[in-house]
Design a protein around this nucleic acid. Structure first.
Lengths: 356, 356
DNA sequence: TTGAAAGCGCTAACAG
DNA sequence: CTGTTAGCGCTTTCAA
């Protein structure tokens, strides 16, 4: 009752060799008589093949890793559920890590996965390409979800970096081509941020808003870039602010923004945690939504509808993203996979009003 | 660049035996000279010991399993973050499964963990004791978090079952004794539901409410029992309703409750998903909170404050719960651990008003 | 169709 | 202090 039966136990009890048991259990050839007996004994002993033994022998682990910055960000939770939904039917265990948005922790977690021989990974990256290079070099199959790692810190006048940025700005036109894995050659599953942001900005413009701000968090560079592009030059850089990932810092960023630029009339939040912060900060400063300030938030989370007014959001299919990413990582029998870009949808509720 | 270095590679390159490498890397004794050389070579080869090999040898896997019903329930996400926070410094990988509240999936996931030789598990259980018995029998160290598995379906007149229920109702008095693992001898980390519910009900009573309803989900039986006890006999059973776990069913339950009993003036939601449903259903039926109906929700999630009015909640420390549960499961060097009951706190915001 | 045997990478017992 | 060796449970040649 304490010790699990091994393949040897089954073999002995069935009076056959271990190889035969292995074959029967993995659907190999065997005489019906033998097969039946082995199956019966296995069931009787409640035998479960040990993944440890199998994996060691095949020098590959089953299982896929999943790295997200923070599970209490409902969008990441949705994404995680998607990964799980894909992995479970495939019988693949999922090893979870949450990085807190910290590249260092991310590195450590990658190391731990490597140690576990988990060589397939779905990640919402926090670190830059430098953080991720080791994983790739070590032969991991990784798929990025929701966002790509930032390029390595480049000199301001690095022409290569500028070229990459151009590339980024140009991709995503309907029917958006997959974003490049950039320097890393890694497939990804992301939302069509450009279209999403553009639609939101146009909507706000249509409402008469001129001073629109962008409130982002770590990993929202693509969205920020899309925002800058959507508002068009000249971009008022004071209206593009970032928090560092924690709820506190998001709140501070939002609050700072509202206070330093009372002339703004609308804000686009780059993620649900930032949207939350914006609502809180606005309330604290006695700004009414949408009378004093209009708000569009990235991520359609269940509670968006509970706010009052209910939040107008740029919905991205978190669950699908996770599912697709897991699919890519599982399917990749060693060969490159195509990246995928999923559509976003502007869901208009009550948090935007005409400019006044 | 593709194949990882093994202990043998390191041994050869350092001109020592594999055992020495193993010793050095696990802090055993070795001459400074040897140690230094081994360390240098290991670093140079970027050697990482394979957990597969080690685990197989020691016939125990590192790692702990984590089973929750649904990550998009923010409380479960908080709990998961707590588990991760405890496991990471310990270097223990966490294998995640989400059960969708379905005992069958839960069983399957337990089976998969067993197969992975993951023999330590933190779980927010969905199935009953029958579902969990196999895991225990198989020698898993499990710790339940947030709730306990329901007893097996007992005959209505089963005196034993009644006794167990009594026990449940009686425990939890300050300083609450740990809840029994019931039939299963499993430690647990749960909130002091009795105190939490009692405080909420008293608060509502103090506001003049007479017809208070309880809106629960799967696994909220303890809370429902606490509710019945708090309102005192005779309990109007029509005011105690349950959803089945999905957001839809929660909404249906809430909506049905409001429509069938327009005389109720307050509701206690047994979890944040149910609270969400209650807010939505109330709005749909044009019931104002708190004017027409007061609401107290279990779980202090970030968005509770975003509702308007902000929700009065029974806060339970989700993150701590996860952390403590992981601690228990990690510390248990085979011996029984004591269960722990964490305090709840009634956080009064704006969703409750005087009865009128 | 079947069994014997060779490892996968590691640690622990035992010699030297 | 260090090397040799025997497995952990499994799959997979290779013969029979």
């Amino acid at each position: 009752m304490e010790k699990r039966a091994t393949i040897k136990d089954v073999a002995e009890a069935a009076g056959v060799g271990v190889a035969t048991v292995s074959r029967v259990l993995s659907g190999g050839s065997a005489s019906p008589r033998t097969r039946e007996r082995v199956l019966a004994v296995a069931a009787q002993l409640d035998y479960r093949p040990s993944a440890l033994g199998r994996n060691l022998r095949q020098r590959r682990t089953g299982g896929i890793g999943l790295l997200v910055p923070d599970l209490t960000d409902t969008f990441h939770a949705q994404l995680a559920e998607g990964v799980l939904a894909c992995a479970r039917p495939a019988g693949e265990p999922v090893v979870l890590g949450s990085t807190g948005g910290d590249p260092e922790q991310e590195s450590e977690l990658i190391g731990m996965l490597l140690e576990q021989s988990v060589d397939r990974l779905v990640a919402v990256p926090s670190g830059d390409e430098e953080t991720w290079a080791p994983a790739i070099r070590a032969g991991m199959t990784v798929v990025f979800a929701d966002r790509l790692p930032a390029g390595p810190p480049a000199a301001d006048d690095d022409p290569a970096a500028a070229a990459v940025d151009d590339l980024l700005l140009l991709d995503g036109l309907a029917p958006a081509p997959p974003p490049p894995g950039r320097a890393l050659d890694v497939p990804s599953v992301v939302a069509d941020d450009r279209a999403g942001i553009r639609t939101a900005v146009r909507y706000l413009r249509g409402l008469g808003h001129k001073r629109i701000a962008f409130l982002g968090g770590p990993g929202h560079d693509r969205r920020a870039a899309a925002f800058r592009e959507a508002v068009g030059a000249p971009v008022d850089e004071e209206l593009v602010v970032f928090g560092t990932g924690s709820r506190d810092s998001a709140y501070a960023a939002a609050s700072g923004l509202f206070q330093s630029r009372p002339d703004l009339s609308a804000v686009v939040a780059g993620g649900n945690v930032l949207g939350e912060a914006a609502v809180l900060a606005a309330r604290e400063l006695d700004l009414r939504v949408p009378r004093d300030v209009s708000l569009v938030m990235y991520d359609d989370v269940p509670w968006a509808e509970l706010c009052s007014p209910p939040l107008t959001v740029i919905a991205q299919p978190g669950r699908d993203m996770g599912y697709r990413a897991a699919e890519l990582v599982l399917r990749s029998g060693g060969r490159r996979q195509r990246s995928v870009v999923l559509p976003t949808e502007l869901i208009i509720r009550g948090s935007c009003g005409p400019h006044r």
